[in-house]
Each structure stands twice: as C-alpha cells, then as structure tokens.
Design a protein around this nucleic acid. Structure first.
Length: 259
DNA sequence: ATGACGGTCCGAGACCGA
C-alpha cells in the first residue's frame, strides 16, 4: 500500500497538477493538507472519476484536510479531539483495509508564527492534543500512522539554512521538544528511519528563488506506530514535483507499506 | 533592510502561510 502526504496549497488552484500527479504517481492513499476549501467546494467528482474515494474536512478560505483512497474509507472521523471550541479544520482520520487494516491520520499542524504569541500558544496546545491522540492510537496496538504537514523542522540538518529559522515557530526549541515528546512515545519517523544526512527537504518557499537554490526545509512527516513500522518497505520524498507547472510549495512524501 | 510569492476571500486589498 503506497501512501503519500501532500500539502497541496489550495486544491482548486492546484486541481490540474493534482490530477496529473494522481495519474502518474498513483498513490493508493493520498493525504492532502491546505485544501483551502469547504467540503462542498472540493472537486470531488474529478477525483472520484480517477478511482478514488474522497473524505474531506474543509473550512472556508484556509486550512482543510482530505483523504483520497482507492480502497474504501472506513470509520472516518474529523477534528482533533481535545478542544470542542477549535473550529480549524486540521485533522481527519480513516481506516483503509488492504492486506491488513491501517488507521490513517491526516494532519495539518498549525504554523505558529509569530512566536511568541497567541498563534504559537495555539500551536503548542494543538501539539498537546496531538500527543493525547497519539497515546490513544498507540494503545490500539494496530498499524497506524499520523502523517501530514507538521510545520516542524526536527533537526538542523532538515533545513538548508538552520540559522535563519532559529527564532521561527517551525524550529524553536519548544516546537521541536513537543515533536520529540510525541516521537518518544514510540513512533518511527518514516523518512529518517531510511535516510540519514542533510539536504532532504519537503518545502521550498515561492520567494527569493528558494527552489532554484535548494533552500528548503523538511516539515512534512509520517509517524508510524510500531505495528505500522513493521510493515514499512520504503519512504521517499518526491522532490521533482516542486519543479512542475504551477506547483505547491510542498512536495509529496511517500511510504510503501506491506499492507 | 526590504520585498519578493501565492491562495482565498472577493471583486480591492487584507489575511494567511513558512
């Protein structure tokens, strides 16, 4: 089962590139972030016509997540538990049954800038809720993953210019510690379990020629429960997508599971 | 040092992102 996470940066603006990508790369499951669309505005029919089931959790203008799957989506739930007053659409999960059932969580973690400030507080509070969901997910003892745009640069080697990010919410010590606290519950970060060293990024800013200079950061991650890590065959970043026509500023990150 | 880029809301320019 090939699963990709992809911050699409506006599904309506990106629909042509998205459909090309679905056809040429053919993920079994695609997790999308920043669809920037309400559920009714999502180009559902176009994607269903390509053979995908679609589950969305959208909102007007910003944020929004979706799961596309060639296999049926079961037990879909929307919203990260822990704050009923939180109206931001950043979390959706579903079960996909291939050779074995996999619980798949698609997340768009808050950016948190400027830091410090209320947006940074929201990011850290959201990560506390993510930690709680992660604990519950591990207790299920089933293959599961939490994947998406974490808006976290885990280590200095995950940025071309780490010093430029020292004060940024993506790289501040509090952010990285919150990420480690979740990792340390027992998750496997798929990419780093397979590939060491610097120079591997999943985001390049549109500005200042970041792509041309390979001035990127690695902020899109896939965290696997132990039962899921046992199924891991491969993990890769599909860098070339950033060079396509009218690209998102993020690229897809993939896992191949024996599932 | 600043702005650069891009999407969404709309129907100009603010807001958000990273």
């Amino acid at each position: 089962m090939k699963i990709a996470t992809f911050n699409i940066n506006g599904v309506k603006a990106r629909i042509e590139g998205l459909t090309h990508w679905l056809q040429d790369s053919a993920p079994d499951v695609a997790l999308l972030q920043e669809i920037k669309s309400v559920d009714d505005g999502f180009p559902r029919q176009i994607i269903e016509d390509l053979g995908y089931n679609v589950a969305t959790h959208g909102q007007k203008g910003f944020n929004g997540v979706a799961i596309l799957s060639k296999l049926p989506l079961e037990d879909v739930t929307r919203g990260l538990p822990g704050d009923d007053a939180d109206e931001q659409a950043r979390w959706i999960e579903a079960t996909v049954v291939g050779d074995t059932a996999v619980r798949i969580c698609c997340l768009y973690l808050p950016n948190g800038n400027p830091a410090p400030g209320p947006k940074f507080d929201y990011k850290l509070a959201w990560m506390d809720r993510l930690h709680a969901r992660a604990v519950a997910l591990l207790a299920e003892e089933m293959p599961a993953l939490m994947a998406g745009d974490y808006n976290i640069i885990p280590q200095a080697e995950d940025a071309a210019r780490p010093d430029a990010w020292r004060e940024d919410a993506l790289f501040r010590p509090d952010s990285r510690a919150a990420f480690r606290r979740i990792m340390n519950l027992g998750f496997t970060e798929a990419f780093r379990s397979r590939t060491a060293g610097p120079g591997h990024y999943s985001f390049w800013d549109y500005q200042a020629g970041a792509w041309d200079k390979n001035d990127g950061i690695r902020i899109d991650h896939m965290l696997l429960t132990p039962q899921c890590a046992d199924l891991l065959r491969d993990c890769s970043i599909q860098k070339e997508v950033r060079g396509r026509e009218k690209p998102s500023d993020h690229v897809p990150v993939w896992v191949d599971l024996a599932a």
